[in-house]
Computed example of a mutant assay.
Amino acid sequence: MVSSVRAVHSSPTHDFSKDPMPSITLLEGIGVSGDAHAGTTVQHRSRMARDPSTPNLRQVHLIHGELFDQLSDEGFTVEPGSLGENITTRGVDLFELPVGTRLSIGEATVVVTGLRNPCRQIDDLQPGLMKRLVFKDDDGHVRRLAGIMGIVARGGVVRPGDQIIVDLPPPPHYPLTTV
């Protein structure tokens, strides 16, 4: 299966969900043009309150589209964009990527920085959803399924249907942690 973009989203406000778009433009070192989370320093409200000068490692939020299929099978009604992601993917196991992986997406390149640490607003979307996206697996490890974050290394336009090319960094590979 070829890895590709299922959908793209953006929002100029700090609403939880993002609107579907025909395309988004990624700006090098900044994020999604016109998105509330774009910037060289943190743009998430809770992180700005702690230290507004912190570098923005969360410029682009990606979620694997297969998650929406799984959630639907479990009775949730969640569509691409409703969890606040900018890019919904298909055919790439985002959680297996190490830190520093380069994703060529359309005309742009995103460098993976880490896992999204979801907030309790997820349960405002649908009760019980947070427990499905953050839980302990059978080995007692905390699993976070609310997507990954990245920074824009090369700007450009991204559209649904664009191919995603994965370029792993040289070893050693470091697993994703929350950013």
Rank of each mutant, 00 (worst) to 15 (best):
L125M: 09
P170G: 08
L129E: 11
P52A: 08
E79T: 13
Q126F: 04
T25P: 02
T178H: 12
V152N: 03
Q70Y: 01
L133N: 12
A153C: 04
E96T: 13
T13L: 07
R143L: 05
Q70T: 11
Q126K: 09
S53R: 11
V142Y: 07
E107F: 14
L103P: 06
R45W: 13
E74I: 00
D15G: 12
V2D: 11
M1A: 11
H61V: 12
S33C: 05
V158N: 01
E79L: 14
K136W: 00
R47N: 10
P170C: 14
G150K: 04
A153L: 09
D51F: 07
V158P: 04
H64W: 03
F16M: 13
P171I: 14
I30T: 14
L71R: 10
L115V: 09
L125A: 07
F68H: 11
R144N: 12
P12Y: 08
F68L: 08
G128V: 11
M130I: 06
K131R: 14
C119D: 13
H44K: 04
V111R: 13
S23F: 07
S23P: 02
M48L: 10
T88L: 09
G31E: 05
F95M: 13
P80K: 10
L57W: 13
V8L: 08
V110H: 04
D93M: 04
E74M: 13
G31A: 03
N117V: 06
P98M: 06
H141K: 13
V134E: 15
S53W: 09
V42N: 04
D139H: 07
F68Y: 15
Q163L: 10
S82P: 03
L27F: 03
P118A: 09
D137M: 02
R45H: 14
Q70N: 11
L67D: 04
D73I: 00
M21D: 01
Y174C: 06
T40C: 04
E74V: 01
S72A: 15
R116E: 10
V110L: 06
V60F: 00
Q70P: 03
T88F: 07
T89C: 12
G161T: 03
R6F: 10
V32N: 02
G84K: 05
V110S: 02
